[in-house]
Amino acid sequence: MNKFYSMLGLCRKAGKLLAGSLGVEKGVVSLKVCLVIISTDASDNTKKKFINLCNSKSIPYLIVGNKEDIGKSIGKGDTAVIGITDVNLSNKLIIEAEEVLTNGGE
């Protein structure tokens, strides 16, 4: 597993991660979330909902990974949406996501 997914696990262990649509939505609305990660295989409705929500609150988002890998990395089942609540971890995840998107994270 690459650094991006390892960092997601670190965020969970540090208590800086919200998983699932309801928790992430509440975190975005209350501005507790610094970054939203949406899986590439999330439903179109889920993607549209969170993209619009993030844009309305000026919160960055990434569409990266798949539900299975994201879920595994945080010790849960398939997870389509997660929110990161720490700004420093969010910034590092954005950098690592660029690696995943550009060359598969190897």
Score class of each variant (00 low, 15 high):
Met1Gln: 10
Asn2Met: 05
Asn2Cys: 03
Phe4Pro: 03
Tyr5Ala: 01
Ser6Ala: 14
Met7Ile: 03
Met7Phe: 10
Leu8Phe: 12
Leu8Tyr: 07
Gly9Glu: 11
Gly9Phe: 10
Gly9Arg: 09
Gly9Leu: 09
Leu10Arg: 14
Leu10His: 12
Cys11Arg: 12
Cys11Gln: 13
Arg12Asn: 14
Lys13Pro: 05
Gly15Glu: 11
Gly15Gln: 09
Gly15Ala: 07
Gly15Lys: 09
Leu18Ala: 08
Leu18Trp: 04
Ala19Phe: 09
Ala19Gly: 01
Ser21Ile: 10
Gly23Tyr: 14
Gly23Arg: 13
Gly23Val: 02
Val24Ala: 04
Glu25Asn: 07
Gly27Ile: 09
Gly27Lys: 03
Val28Glu: 05
Val29Trp: 01
Val29Tyr: 03
Val29Ala: 05
Ser30Asn: 11
Leu31Asp: 10
Leu31Ala: 09
Lys32Pro: 02
Lys32Gln: 10
Val33Trp: 05
Cys34Glu: 13
Cys34Ala: 09
Cys34Tyr: 09
Leu35Gly: 08
Leu35Trp: 05
Leu35Cys: 08
Val36Asp: 03
Ile37Phe: 08
Ile38Met: 06
Ser39Asp: 04
Thr40Asn: 11
Thr40Leu: 11
Asp41Gln: 08
Asp41Glu: 11
Asp41Thr: 07
Asp41Cys: 04
Asp41Asn: 15
Ser43Glu: 11
Asp44Pro: 01
Asn45Ala: 11
Asn45Val: 13
Thr46Arg: 02
Thr46Met: 07
Thr46His: 01
Lys47Gly: 08
Lys47His: 13
Lys48Tyr: 02
Lys48Trp: 07
Lys49Gly: 01
Phe50Ile: 01
Asn52Leu: 10
Asn52Arg: 10
Cys54Asp: 07
Asn55Pro: 00
Ser56Arg: 02
Ser56Val: 00
Lys57Tyr: 14
Lys57Cys: 06
Ile59Val: 13
Leu62Asn: 05
Val64Gln: 05
Val64Trp: 06
Val64Phe: 05
Val64Thr: 10
Gly65Cys: 06
Asn66Arg: 04
Lys67Leu: 06
Lys67Val: 09
Glu68His: 09
Glu68Gly: 01
Asp69Ile: 05
Gly71Arg: 01
Lys72Arg: 07
Lys72Asp: 01
Ile74Tyr: 00
Gly75Leu: 02
Gly77Tyr: 00
Asp78Phe: 05
Thr79Asn: 00
Thr79Trp: 00
Val81Met: 03
Gly83Val: 05
Gly83Tyr: 01
Ile84Gln: 02
Thr85Val: 10
Thr85Phe: 04
Thr85Glu: 10
Asp86Phe: 12
Val87Gln: 02
Val87Met: 05
Val87His: 02
Val87Leu: 09
Asn88His: 12
Ser90Ile: 05
Ser90Val: 06
Asn91Gln: 14
Asn91Trp: 06
Asn91Tyr: 06
Asn91Cys: 10
Lys92Val: 13
Lys92Glu: 15
Leu93Ser: 09
Ile94Trp: 06
Ile95Met: 15
Ile95Cys: 12
Ile95Lys: 15
Ala97Pro: 15
Ala97Lys: 11
Glu98Met: 12
Glu99Lys: 14
Glu99Arg: 15
Val100Leu: 15
Leu101Met: 15
Gly104Thr: 02
Gly105Thr: 08
Glu106Val: 12
